[in-house]
């Protein structure tokens, strides 16, 4: 066995960890210093998300469900930022809820990052509202199907939901023409499809931004039960560039704020890590076949 193969055979796992750390950290530093990002072109699933929001008439009701926690924030926060950005720019009324206990904090962060910072004219209770979290997973969806206020009796700040001005005309889940769930697992996009979209008889359209782990599992629902889907950080980057490009076209201002390019920036380390993964698989197989050939030679 050659020396190289021997090295591969006995390679300590910590060298692999170090290689992964460098392949991720290197591009982060480069992009962090230069601000350069890689170009993105949108796939049909990401385009469908954009179109679903864009096609709604202004001041439509959009229900956001933040079904994730900070553990998946690296993938999903950029999606949340861009989705709220497009809805705010389009002038939709945004209703935020969470079925994960840590979701309300992420909603607050997104509201501060996008709405408070760039759309200060939007008023809480009139243009957007955060209802916070409710325990019960699918049972919350079940209650929402017939009585939204019963499912979420108060806003996060402690005001009665029924008294929120933008709740006028809202009684049940089907009063929201578009549902956007940002999903990291259970309960999440799959449950929204199963319990709300499928039983609404087409009244509720749903798009989702989901983690990489969930993306393959949700593909069978697209484009039937799911109108659009942002899969993993790549989906977020595609959608982000689509929203930025179109908003720049509308406003005539080509300068994009860095906070709206988070996913695109993250595609740099993604490239480095994916190339490393491919290299590791190839090297692992080289070592495997070399050893197998040597074993066959020895037995012959």
């Amino acid at each position: 066995m050659s020396g190289f193969i021997k090295v591969l055979e006995g390679l300590d796992r910590r060298w692999i960890y170090l290689a992964m750390a460098i392949s991720v950290a290197g591009p982060i530093i480069y992009i962090g210093l230069t601000g350069r990002t890689l170009p993105e072109s949108a796939t049909p699933a990401a385009e469908a998300v954009y179109n679903a929001i864009e096609e709604l008439p202004a001041r439509s009701r959009v229900l956001f469900s933040f079904d994730f926690d900070p553990g998946s924030g690296g993938e999903l926060i950029p999606m949340a930022t861009s989705l709220v950005h497009q809805c705010a720019a389009r002038g939709h009324k945004m209703y935020f809820i969470a079925l994960w206990p840590l979701g309300p904090q992420l909603i607050e962060d997104t509201i501060k990052r996008v709405i408070t910072a760039d759309y200060p004219h939007l008023k809480e209770g009139v243009d957007f509202v955060n209802f916070g979290y409710q325990a019960g997973n699918e049972a919350v969806m079940k209650v929402m199907l017939t009585d939204f206020v019963k499912a979420f009796p108060k806003t996060k700040t402690g005001d009665a939901s029924a008294q929120v001005p933008m709740m006028e005309g809202v009684t049940r889940a089907s009063d929201f023409p578009l549902l956007i769930t940002i999903s990291a697992g259970y309960p999440g996009a799959k449950e929204w499809v199963q319990y709300v979209v499928s039983s609404s008889g087409g009244k509720v359209k749903m798009v989702t931004g989901c983690t990489g782990v969930q993306t393959p599992q949700l593909y069978p629902y697209f484009p039937g039960q799911l109108a659009g889907m942002l899969g993993a950080i790549k989906g977020a980057a595609e959608y982000e560039s689509l929203v930025n490009a179109n908003l720049a076209k509308t406003s005539g201002d080509a300068k994009v704020q860095p906070k709206y390019q988070e996913a695109q920036r993250r595609m740099g380390p993604q490239l480095g890590a994916h190339l490393l993964m491919v290299a590791l698989i190839v090297l692992g197989n080289i070592a495997y076949f070399a050893k197998r050939r040597e074993g066959a030679r020895a037995s012959a």
Partner: peptide, 27 residues
């Protein structure tokens, strides 16, 4: 407290999946 620990715990899996790919992915 909560954010750094939970997020980093999930991030650790990137390293393990790389190591597993090197050792277990055989054609």
């Amino acid at each position: 407290g909560l954010v750094p620990i939970t997020a980093t715990m999930f991030a650790l899996l990137a390293f393990y999946v790389a190591s597993a790919a090197f050792r277990a992915f055989r054609a």
